[in-house]
Amino acid sequence: MFSSYDGLCGIGELAERAGVSVKTVRFYSDSGLLPEASRTAGGHRRYGPDSLARLRLIRSLRAMDLPVPSVRRILDEEDTAGRAGGALEDAVAGQLRTLGTQLRALRWREAALRLVQECAPDERADRLRLVGAVTAPPNTAPMARFWRAWLPPRMPARSVTAFLDVAVPQPPEDPGTAQVLAFARLYAFVDRPCGGTEPTQPHAHRAAGARDSAVLYAGLAQAYALAAERMRAGSEPHQGEALDGFVEAYASAGGITDTPNFRRELARRLAADPRIDRYWELTAELISPPDGSPEPTPGSAHDWLLDALNTQQGIALPAQRPGRARS
């Protein structure tokens, strides 16, 4: 309760009691957050007994960087229901999401700065150019565009989304310098057109219709997941469930029976398909854990399965595949 004869107080007294400036009180009043009880004949603002508690609540909400519209919704809800409920919860949740994004951006900027700082002087200009092209936090939309252009044009949207979920790597929340460099190089890789005059898509893409492409990629996803389990266990490419599912995906998409002749032809055809090794190499660098153990990617799983198919057909394996990755 204020000590004045009418139980009200002026703007200066209210500001002093709340520990804010008169300008701040005037701003909140003009914004409709802090109603005035009355005005004197001379036009001076007067505030009621509840104004101090309301002003302190406003200051607390604003101290959490909640925007004025959010503060207004919280106050309106408190005026109506007698307490802050859903509006406060929504505002706090939204602010936490915003802060999470900001913190993630700061961690990426810090790692990028360390990357430039720690590299050799003659490499700094190139590193700065690479990391400077990437937003913080990093945006994976260029990777998604790259794959949308590469996938069969009639592939159903649901199948495209499922493929992008595994083909587009999500940057780590707290990256190391090597991961920042891998992402920057990956960003630069997808930001330029696939090169040359050779076709950039596998043979299966050019022949697949909407249903066939959905069948193909659903089957490949299962085969890649099985192969990844074997790869994490350190198994060399071999026959089994993963290889059978891999072959069946191509056979089902083409309406063909899985036979020894089909497997020989498939091995020949896959060996001639174009490759996107560099994408999968960089993806593995980006998503692999700090202990250095390589995490399988769809590309490296494809290579493992193709090696298993070649072994079954008695075909000599390549001496070395970069990153064991394939488009």
Rank of each mutant, 00 (worst) to 15 (best):
G48F: 05
D79Q: 12
A111H: 07
R56N: 11
P35V: 12
A41K: 09
R97D: 09
I58L: 01
G86I: 11
L113A: 15
P69E: 12
A53W: 02
A120P: 00
A125D: 15
A125Y: 10
L103Q: 15
L96M: 12
L75S: 01
T98L: 15
Q117R: 14
T40G: 09
D65W: 06
S51C: 02
L57H: 00
R124Q: 15
V68S: 09
A84L: 10
F27P: 07
L34N: 02
R46C: 02
L34R: 00
I74T: 10
V68K: 11
A91I: 01
L34G: 07
L57F: 00
P35M: 07
Y28G: 14
L75R: 14
D122V: 12
A87I: 11
A37M: 02
Y47F: 06
L113I: 08
D65E: 08
D76F: 07
E118C: 04
L61I: 01
L99W: 04
D126K: 12
A111D: 07
F27C: 05
R97C: 10
R114M: 04
L57W: 02
E89R: 13
L88G: 08
L55Q: 05
V116M: 00
W108E: 05
P67K: 09
A112N: 07
A93D: 10
L103N: 14
A91L: 01
R39L: 04
V92G: 03
L75E: 00
E78N: 15
R104T: 13
R59N: 03
D122N: 07
G85R: 05
D76A: 15
S70D: 14
C119W: 09
R104G: 00
R73E: 13
L33R: 08
A93V: 13
L66V: 01
R83T: 11
A111T: 12
A120R: 06
P69V: 09
R124P: 03
A91E: 04
S38C: 04
V116I: 15
L106S: 09
A41T: 06
I74P: 02
V68P: 00
A93W: 05
A37D: 06
L75H: 10
A84Y: 13
D126V: 15
R56M: 01
R104F: 08
Q102V: 06
A112Q: 01
G94A: 09
R62D: 03
E77P: 10
H44S: 13
P121E: 14
A87F: 11
V92W: 08
D90E: 13
I58F: 01
V116E: 00
D126I: 13
V71C: 02
F27L: 07
D65Q: 07
G43P: 00
